[in-house]
Amino acid sequence: MSRRFALGLFVASLISISALPTDSFSQTKSLKEQLIGTWIYESSKGTREDGSAVERPKSKGAVTYTSDGHFHFITVRSDAPKYASGDSARPSPEEAMAIASGVVAYTGTYTVEEGSKTIHVNIETSSFPNLAGAPNQRRIVTSISDDELMFTNPRTPAGVTLELVFKRAK
């Protein structure tokens, strides 16, 4: 009877061990898995090649990464004037310029290079048409956690390096 009892305990312990989480559960998520979701724009800092700072407008926005490799990015000046006419099709030239120069929006597809923590973006359409189809669009992730994403856009068309900070949308 004690041999059966011991054998039963042994089998029960094997079953218990097999029910423990596997290595894939205990491994950390890939960068792509961590990126998936919507991130709310917090701040950005621009630097020219000579090291001088670039004044950045107060903005609101977000970036979203989907699991199937699509993304959208938008920032809008939060201090842009309202149209005096109240008609979005009839801004004054000054109002139109303030809006156009204060919006950056683009969408397309992305891939992730895990080793270098680089997001490669293929911009398909943009509020700044020069970005659409521009080669070698990279975003280098400098920090990512469950709640915060920081990345660098190493060279914008204006020759500025941007450091951007986002908080995960809740």
Rank of each mutant, 00 (worst) to 15 (best):
L131A: 07
V76K: 07
Y41A: 11
N122A: 10
N122F: 01
E49K: 13
Y41P: 12
S13D: 05
P135Q: 04
Y65A: 07
V104C: 05
Q27F: 06
E94N: 12
E95P: 01
V141D: 08
F73I: 11
V141P: 08
T22K: 13
Y41N: 12
I36P: 08
T118S: 04
P129G: 02
V63R: 06
V54K: 08
T109D: 12
L20W: 07
I119H: 06
G8Q: 09
E114K: 05
I15D: 08
G61L: 07
E148C: 04
V112L: 10
R48T: 13
P81Y: 01
Q34H: 08
A96R: 15
W39R: 06
S13L: 05
F71D: 09
T38F: 02
S116Q: 11
S26H: 06
S85T: 15
S101A: 14
V141H: 12
T109P: 06
G61V: 04
L7S: 09
G37Y: 04
V112Q: 11
K45M: 06
G102D: 03
D68L: 01
T22Y: 06
D68N: 10
V11C: 03
Q137D: 10
F10K: 03
S101P: 11
D147F: 03
S43T: 02
T142A: 00
I123D: 11
I140K: 04
Q137W: 00
K58S: 06
S44I: 02
Y106D: 04
